[in-house]
């Protein structure tokens, strides 16, 4: 069953994040994907996450598609203007990629090419409007397309914001839903109680909420994220449990498994497992979470 069918019928979906290489050798990416073939519903291929230059999401998606694996293509307004975005999205549709998500993109200054010029020709919601137009057969100038794409459309949701910022996030989510977004992938979730409160404010009849479960690698990494990454907090007992564990990897995999189980119990739309560089550990996480 395709990701689209599963999301439309409200089934729990399991996504994995697979970064394209910084280079032309896609073999590792494909090998990681094949290792969990049939255990995941689709692979989210980031578009230069954290503004670090890599092969494009479109390239990665085309590679996975060729292998008979279902990808989720990311379109990012930071580096492409409306011509380039539309061109890539049509290319994705033509290549048989069925899933697309629009992401805002990290600031260029945070990446490995800080001297680059950002584009931001379209905002995220304008890009969604553009995709809706393409799916109805017209480009942004109203010109008819020769062949129309049909995408399952998704976007991101910042699960960590609070107060007025959360109100704005939810307002934006409502606009995204009106523009055809059917799923959102959240920022990494570590605090289940806090996430449950957010879930109560979301209309899950209208949108599949897919939290990201990030596989931690060490107590140091967890502490760094907790202290330095805005809107992500990691409970201190979770960090301590990694610190105390004799087998750190095992404990990190257990945490990911526990988070997935906890989220599943909340009847979320699915989970997106992010392993940032530890893609070979994806099977361990799936085993731990008894998925697939």
């Amino acid at each position: 069953m395709s990701l689209k069918e599963k999301i439309e019928t409200g089934q729990f979906v399991v996504l994995g994040e697979l970064e394209p290489p910084k280079g032309t050798d896609f073999s590792h990416m494909v090998a990681h994907a094949n290792r969990v073939r049939n255990r995941l519903d689709a692979f989210v291929v980031p578009e230069m996450a954290n503004a670090v230059m890599k092969a494009s999401s479109l390239g990665g998606c085309a590679c996975l598609n060729r292998e008979g694996l279902e990808p989720v293509f990311q379109a990012c307004c930071r580096d492409r203007n409306r011509l380039a975005l539309q061109a890539d999205i049509l290319a994705a549709g033509g290549l048989g990629i069925d899933n697309i998500m629009v992401v805002p993109g990290e600031e260029i200054a945070f990446g490995d090419h800080p001297r680059a010029r950002a584009v931001h020709d379209l905002s995220l919601t304008q890009a969604l409007e553009m995709i809706r137009g393409l799916c109805s057969g017209k480009d942004m100038s109203g010109i008819d397309l020769q062949g129309t794409p049909d995408f399952l459309v998704g976007s991101n949701l910042n699960a960590g914001v609070t107060g007025g910022a959360l109100d704005l996030e939810l307002e934006e989510l409502s606009s995204k839903i009106d523009l055809g977004v059917r799923f959102v992938i959240t920022t990494p979730v570590f605090d289940l109680d806090r996430f449950e409160k957010l879930l109560k404010r979301l209309d899950r009849q209208k949108i599949a909420v897919i939290p990201t479960v990030l596989l931690l690698k060490s107590a140091g990494m967890a502490r760094y994220i907790d202290r330095n990454i805005p809107h992500i907090s990691i409970p201190s007992d979770m960090i301590q449990s990694i610190q105390k564990a004799s087998d750190k990897l095992k404990r990190c995999v257990e945490i990911a498994g526990e988070l997935i189980a906890g989220l599943k119990a909340m009847e979320v739309g699915g989970v997106m497992i992010s392993t940032i560089g530890w893609e070979d550990k994806l099977p361990l996480v799936l085993d731990q979470a008894r998925l697939g």
Partner: peptide, 12 residues
Amino acid sequence: PIKDWSTDRAGG
């Protein structure tokens, strides 16, 4: 040399 746009609006 290739232009450093970080001093332009690209850097915020």
